[in-house]
Computed example of a mutant assay.
Amino acid sequence: MHTHTSTKHAGICVRDLRARQKVSQLDLALRVGVSQRHLSCIETGKASASKEMLLALLEGLEAPLNIRNETLVAGGFAPLFGSRPIEHREMNTINEVIDLMLMGQHAAPAMVLDSEWNLVKFNPGFIRLMNLLEFDVAALQATPNILLALTAPGGLATRLINPAEVLGDVLRRAQREALHVPSLQAMLNQIPQSMFESKVPVDTNNPTLVTRFQSAVGELRFISTFTTFGAPLDITAASLRIEHLFPADEQTRTAFS
């Protein structure tokens, strides 16, 4: 049986997450099917929340698995989701799928990022792209964060032909994700504010945003796809996404053939 104090802390976790996402008490109550009054009592610690209720509230907020674990522990319950390192033997199937996707389109640059945009894995096409952009792969591996690599002085953004368009999309995406990942928000705070302020019209002549690089072989044009694991039950697996950069014109296809 959990104590009033631990339940109060769990309620604060729910309240803080709800506030970060700018979700009202009424909205969350409707999503979960409880009264706003009961939700208010849980958040203030006046009412205890069962494990099932906490999980329902966290599901209603689409909380990351690590936040769900932290809230359960704060409520006096055992954590529900594992957090295996990527090299753990129980992650073998995850790694096999990742390697298959990285090498299945080996000519197209591809990389695996975690929830903080750290570079976890990449394929030969990605190395080829970095070389064509004359960007130091060793330096990127030393500080393997794509957000910082893009926005640092002399970073990858300096190779972009359409930096405002691409950075605008990247930073908006990162800001949305930071609602669930506080450590990502801390990283965004390191990026110069001016990079968040540029607004340019998106070229709607294309069906998707085209990332354009100036390289040693001329302009390279890519469209991006993102792949995540369906129904993850492990914090590490949930944090991973695979980004493919597919050539968007003949010149780029030739450079990566």
Rank of each mutant, 00 (worst) to 15 (best):
D16F: 06
R18W: 11
A19M: 10
Q25Y: 13
Q25R: 15
Q25E: 14
L26D: 15
L28Y: 02
L30Q: 11
V32C: 10
G33V: 05
G33E: 06
V34S: 08
S35C: 07
S35K: 04
Q36Y: 03
R37Y: 06
H38Q: 10
L39Q: 05
S40H: 02
I42R: 00
E43R: 02
T44Q: 01
K46E: 10
A47S: 10
S48F: 03
K51V: 10
E52K: 11
E52A: 14
E52N: 13
M53C: 05
L54K: 01
A56V: 08
L58W: 01
E59L: 02
L61A: 12
L61R: 09
E62V: 09
A63Q: 03
A63F: 02
N66V: 00
I67Y: 00
R68Q: 09
R68H: 00
E70W: 01
L72D: 00
L72C: 01
L72W: 02
V73G: 10
A74H: 10
G75L: 04
G76I: 07
A78M: 11
P79G: 11
L80E: 06
F81Y: 07
F81S: 04
S83R: 09
E87R: 03
E87N: 11
H88K: 01
H88V: 05
R89P: 13
R89W: 14
N92E: 15
N92R: 14
N95P: 15
N95E: 15
L100G: 08
M101F: 15
Q105S: 15
H106D: 12
A110H: 13
A110F: 12
L113Q: 04
L119W: 07
V120G: 03
N123R: 10
G125R: 06
F126L: 13
F126D: 04
I127P: 07
I127N: 12
R128T: 13
N131W: 08
E134Q: 10
E134M: 09
D136I: 00
V137S: 01
A139G: 09
